[in-house]
Amino acid sequence: MVSKKHLHIESSGQLCIYCGACVGVCPLNCVYLDETRITFDEKVCTRCEICVKACPVGAIEIG
């Protein structure tokens, strides 16, 4: 099995502003925003990195 890149969202309030930009761009519907919590379905995520670009504050890191 090919191991996927590590996915990290800085959502503890340091960077993430819970704006939902990453949710709206995800082509696979695998990001979910619940008020002040963002979760990724890591199994579905293909690490396409569109959300990384869409995040206006740079809170998502993949690598």
Partner: peptide, 10 residues
């Protein structure tokens, strides 16, 4: 988005 490259560019 198609015109930016990296993180936090906005």
């Amino acid at each position: 988005l198609s015109k930016i490259k990296g993180m936090a560019e906005a």
